[in-house]
Nucleic acid binder design. Sequence first.
DNA 1: CACCACAAATAATGATTGATTATAGAATTC
DNA 2: GAATTCTATAATCAATCATTATTTGTGGTG
Lengths: 323, 323
Amino acid sequence: MQYFLCLAEEKNVTRAARQLNIVQPALSMQISKLEAELGQKLFDRSVQGMTLTSAGEALVRLTAPIVRDAEYARQEMAQLGGRISGRVSVGLITSVAQSTMASSSATVASRYPEIALSACEGYTETLVDWVNTGQLDFALINVPRRKTPLAAHHVMDEEMVFACRKDCPIKPPAKLRFDHIANFDLVLPSKRHGLRLILDEHAAALGIDLRPRLELDTLPALCDVIATTDFATVLPTIALRQSLASGTIRAHRFDEQRVVRSIAWVHHPRRTVSVAAKAVLDVITHDLAQAAATAKEFVEPALRGANSSYRKARKTPRRKTRS
Amino acid sequence: MQYFLCLAEEKNVTRAARQLNIVQPALSMQISKLEAELGQKLFDRSVQGMTLTSAGEALVRLTAPIVRDAEYARQEMAQLGGRISGRVSVGLITSVAQSTMASSSATVASRYPEIALSACEGYTETLVDWVNTGQLDFALINVPRRKTPLAAHHVMDEEMVFACRKDCPIKPPAKLRFDHIANFDLVLPSKRHGLRLILDEHAAALGIDLRPRLELDTLPALCDVIATTDFATVLPTIALRQSLASGTIRAHRFDEQRVVRSIAWVHHPRRTVSVAAKAVLDVITHDLAQAAATAKEFVEPALRGANSSYRKARKTPRRKTRS
DNA sequence: CACCACAAATAATGATTGATTATAGAATTC
DNA sequence: GAATTCTATAATCAATCATTATTTGTGGTG
């Protein structure tokens, strides 16, 4: 039924199927089955797609409220939350885990005492794997360039910034370009890391060859290296948040040739996400947005507009320490 | 979801499951799965059944309109009928087939030109089998004493009456009892026939032993024998309709120890009946009721009350000849 | 207290559904 | 006329759901 409505909107089996996270023949079959069951044609087939017959239009009118009600019911039940329970296991890429889990796990524990949460950290690729096999209910990952078989939902975009020690001898120029980083000794995540892949791709597109002197996958360690040596790095802001807040390092936004990484949450396309899992997701994304917002305040040059003055207003931003 | 609402009403898994044409563990599993998905208990389990929690009540309020709308949508789509199409194959016990198919097939053909109808005749038992294997969309059968695995819906009850030649030498008494039939030479359907089973059971309950001199399963032939010889029989009225209308035989209602057979339509419990099939079913049941009504007019003694005078009003009832 | 009766839950197996890959057919477009 | 784009069909494979058989738990009864 969902299928039918989606197709009715898209008027194109292939596209609708993609949107529904299934393959085209599956949709074709379901639709023809539906038509057989109702004993009437719902679509007029043409080469530029499928268009509703009058019967199809009638069915849209009849079924639209149903899915609307169903969606509403789901949400209502989720909000009935005091008693939400269940086992929820999530996977997070390290940057997300580092910046959210301390606070998020506490929030979940207090707000949903009957949820048993299990969070694990891992590389995008392995997390996708865990989700696929059902070991994880969902995962927050870097959007992979390659198609995954999972249902993905965008969470946020985040800029990757240059970072080095506070009093680094080599000062980055005011208008920092990505290719300037060749002048620094770099410490970066290994190739197994999604962030590194993004950097490599970006560099390759600009004809640069990234050759870090050091490769480190554990972010706290990496930050520590930055803070205590003259190494520099390029990381998303939230990964640097702790160190930025403590004032040991500083971060510079690129003026052009910006690098952006996107975070998405993924789940098994044909397994419904429990309300408990959704609740956990909400908590984490909320904390993640929070973390990103505060982290962004430390990056130089300050963003133009309201944000900038806002940042200047408080030199020592408080941060939630809820763990 | 249907399951949930049904259980909410019944408050008893076993009974609800029976009503849903599934077995008890199936329902148990589905419900607990639903609870896991929503992360909250929907029922309080006790020994005298299951009672809704507040969350369960909330879900009832939320889902009841959905199934209502869905049911409404089904019906609407069915009524949008001009264009109903599809292949429909039905099975009918002989008595029903004889009295309806001539007219019903014509009606279906004219009213639903895009339905391809295939009707077959058979014994209750074999028809049930065909339905089970999916060779038939549904069947009209005698309600079997044994449980079938099919979903059954009552269609009509019908009296079985004594019948013999118009000028039979042995006149049946005014107040006919079932055990009187032992005085006649009987021709009855064979033991393979559902009607015969009903008669045998009825006879056994009364301590009578039915020993027909002749066994015939083809109803027209049987009627012919009745009309042309001194044999007598006991059959449901509609099976005798043709011969009664032509005046060659006469039928007598039993005064006591009545025999009633029930007709039901059955379909695969987990296969949805297409609207085309439903349309065909409607036509057949309508014609069947019609046939039963006209057939009843010929049976003696006339029924008391309104019916009786109605019958007397027209000695030569017209009958639809639509074939 | 053992025993039975009844209701629901669990486990193992089996059938049906639905998704997937691969492929074919029909209609445009270049 | 080859390539592209869209939908439909066929065969295979996985997951869901239902079934039978069995177990657990609770209350009534001799």
